[in-house]
């Protein structure tokens, strides 16, 4: 569930937790004040209200402080995003094809498969192609998501950091069997990956020349 299998897990989780802490603080503050006031100034106890029209210093305070805080949040979000768009030069490119309602993957050497195999600790750049409608390439364990749009080729990269197999989901609604549009990404140690892709290529060649 909270699998951490890529280089993006830590920055995304940290930004999330940072913002959640600030949000919880403000929620508790507001709710706490609300409850305190409701009890303290209940009409049974406090028969006479006082008119206070407002306070400019207070308004400035609660405008400026949240503004600063959201700017900090924005900074973390933006830098985190920036690191997700610029793929390293030595990334291994894989073409991803989405169609109603399945995924397929094509490697640089022409090998195709239904499951995405990637080597451990090697940056992978996926090029996303749609054959029909909008889809979205979503790997929760990697904290990445990118829409797959016809007439456009979006890209996304990641660095797998843990061996295992993880779910690939479609996150953009695409019709009848949208929710069944699963696939798997399998992270293998590099030698095993090389062996797999060599075997697969040999297999394909055998099948092609009967």
């Amino acid at each position: 569930m909270f699998a951490d299998a890529s280089n993006f897990v830590l920055p995304v989780d940290n930004t999330f937790i940072f913002i959640v802490i600030i949000c919880v603080f403000f929620l508790v503050l507001i709710t706490g004040m609300m409850i305190t006031f409701v009890i303290k100034y209940n009409s049974k106890k406090n028969k006479k209200a006082k008119n206070i029209h407002g306070s400019v210093p207070l308004e400035i305070t609660w405008t400026v402080i949240p503004t600063i805080l959201v700017m900090v949040m924005f900074y973390f979000g933006w830098t985190g995003y920036k690191s997700m768009t610029d793929a390293p030069k030595d990334s291994m490119a894989v073409d991803v094809y989405a169609q109603m309602w399945s995924w397929s993957y094509k490697y640089a050497n022409g090998v195709e498969s239904d499951t995405l195999f990637v080597p451990l600790n090697k940056p992978v750049k996926v090029l996303l192609h749609s054959r029909d409608v909008d889809h979205s390439f979503y790997v929760p364990a990697f904290r990445i998501k990118k829409d797959v749009i016809p007439n456009r080729t979006n890209t996304e990269w990641f660095l797998p950091t843990r061996v295992g197999s993880y779910d690939v989901l479609c996150a953009e609604y695409c019709g009848l069997r949208h929710s069944y549009m699963y696939s798997t990404v399998v992270v293998l140690p590099e030698d095993q990956y090389n062996k797999w892709i060599a075997d697969k290529q040999a297999q394909d060649n055998d099948a092609a020349t009967p």
Binding site: T15, G77, Y81, Y138
Partner: peptide, 23 residues
């Protein structure tokens, strides 16, 4: 509304939103 608004702020952060959007 505070909960709604604050969870909106969470999704304003770009890298977090890439994970949370459409979920």
């Amino acid at each position: 509304f505070s909960i709604g608004g604050l969870t909106g702020i969470i999704q304003g952060a770009l890298n977090v939103d890439l994970y949370l959007t459409d979920t």
